[in-house]
Simulated scan of single mutants.
Amino acid sequence: MIYPRTDLFDLCKVRDTTFWPLQRQELSRTAGGRTQAKDLGSALWRASFTTAPARLDDAQDVEAALISLNGSVGSFLAHDVRRPFPKAHPGGFSGTLAISLLFSENAYSVQLSSPGGGLTLSPGDYIGFEYGAGGSRALHMIQSPPQTLSAGVPKSFDVFPAIRPGAAVGAAITVNRASCEMILEPGHQAPALRDLVASSLSFSAIQIL
């Protein structure tokens, strides 16, 4: 089996989902009673999915895919199915996009450029790219007000979480089903059967780098 699996969400329809950052922070209090928060690292994405009931012969395809992950050993690519494409491009964006500048003083901002332009990114849209020697996958949510890229004119966008070391200028950006690599969290239950005809699965996962 080759990981990460890329076909998991082609095998099922997701009925319910959450896609939320898992903060790596700690709180402390000063002698004067002031509460302070400290980041211990960039946030990771955590997700939960419940599939729509499917006939057993179809449901077993996704069940087999999940079992093939061997619990938390194998990984798969996951995206936020509520926003698979940019809000302004519900059918997807066909152009190319790349990182044109990284800001050493602000890891929550990135400059992007598109040779053909025409891409509008809005809050809640996702961008993904590979970084580092091992080809780790980054997934970031746009936080800036809507902006449209013109041909050859770069623009800066606020993103979350912070961009990690290893990101490089020139890296190709994905906005269509932008994904991160995830593993299953332990403790999943067997599928829920409905009249022995249909089956539904619920599972949760966390991003790995």
Rank of each mutant, 00 (worst) to 15 (best):
residue 129 F to M: 02
residue 67 I to N: 08
residue 176 N to K: 06
residue 164 R to E: 15
residue 164 R to K: 15
residue 30 T to L: 05
residue 64 A to F: 07
residue 26 E to I: 14
residue 118 G to W: 04
residue 95 G to C: 07
residue 11 L to W: 05
residue 65 A to R: 10
residue 151 A to T: 06
residue 42 S to D: 09
residue 56 L to N: 12
residue 47 A to K: 02
residue 27 L to V: 02
residue 119 L to K: 00
residue 189 Q to C: 01
residue 60 Q to L: 15
residue 18 T to G: 06
residue 122 S to V: 09
residue 103 F to P: 01
residue 131 Y to L: 07
residue 204 S to E: 12
residue 131 Y to V: 00
residue 188 H to F: 12
residue 34 R to A: 12
residue 85 F to H: 14
residue 132 G to E: 03
residue 155 K to W: 02
residue 166 G to S: 12
residue 17 T to M: 13
residue 195 D to P: 02
residue 191 P to V: 11
residue 52 A to R: 14
residue 134 G to C: 00
residue 104 S to Y: 09
residue 42 S to E: 14
residue 97 L to C: 10
residue 145 P to K: 08
residue 118 G to D: 08
residue 10 D to K: 11
residue 201 L to T: 03
residue 17 T to L: 06
residue 59 A to V: 07
residue 111 Q to C: 05
residue 203 F to M: 08
residue 156 S to M: 14
residue 66 L to D: 01
residue 3 Y to C: 04
residue 195 D to I: 10
residue 22 L to C: 10
residue 204 S to K: 09
residue 144 S to K: 00
residue 17 T to N: 05
residue 185 E to L: 15
residue 158 D to K: 06
residue 126 Y to I: 03
residue 36 Q to T: 04
residue 200 S to W: 01
residue 107 A to G: 03
residue 66 L to F: 08
residue 180 C to Q: 08
residue 44 L to Y: 12
residue 11 L to T: 07
residue 121 L to Q: 02
residue 118 G to L: 07
residue 202 S to I: 04
residue 77 L to Y: 11
residue 72 S to Q: 15
residue 170 G to Q: 05
residue 22 L to V: 07
residue 54 A to W: 01
residue 118 G to M: 09
residue 181 E to G: 00
residue 38 K to C: 00
residue 161 P to N: 03
residue 174 T to F: 04
residue 137 R to L: 08
residue 78 A to W: 01
residue 141 M to F: 00
residue 179 S to H: 11
residue 162 A to N: 08
residue 7 D to A: 09
residue 53 P to C: 13
residue 41 G to L: 02
residue 195 D to M: 06
residue 37 A to C: 03
residue 144 S to D: 10
residue 55 R to Y: 13
residue 170 G to Y: 11
residue 146 P to C: 06
residue 151 A to K: 02
residue 11 L to H: 06
residue 20 W to G: 06
residue 10 D to H: 10
residue 91 G to H: 14
residue 167 A to K: 03
residue 117 G to T: 07
residue 202 S to F: 14
residue 94 S to I: 09
residue 149 L to G: 00
residue 202 S to D: 09
residue 36 Q to A: 00
residue 114 S to L: 05
residue 107 A to I: 05
residue 109 S to N: 09
residue 136 S to T: 12
residue 57 D to Y: 13
residue 122 S to D: 11
residue 115 P to G: 07
residue 102 L to E: 02
residue 196 L to W: 08
residue 7 D to E: 15
residue 144 S to R: 00
residue 122 S to T: 14
residue 46 R to S: 15
residue 199 S to D: 13
residue 78 A to S: 12
residue 166 G to W: 04
residue 32 G to N: 11
residue 105 E to W: 09
residue 64 A to V: 05
residue 77 L to R: 15
residue 87 K to A: 15
residue 18 T to K: 13
residue 22 L to Q: 15
residue 51 T to H: 04
residue 141 M to L: 09
residue 144 S to L: 05
residue 133 A to R: 15
residue 199 S to W: 02
residue 33 G to H: 01
residue 91 G to L: 12
residue 51 T to Q: 08
residue 98 A to I: 06
residue 43 A to F: 01
residue 83 R to M: 15
residue 163 I to Q: 00
residue 39 D to A: 12
residue 146 P to F: 04
residue 63 E to H: 13
residue 119 L to F: 04
residue 129 F to T: 01
residue 32 G to D: 13
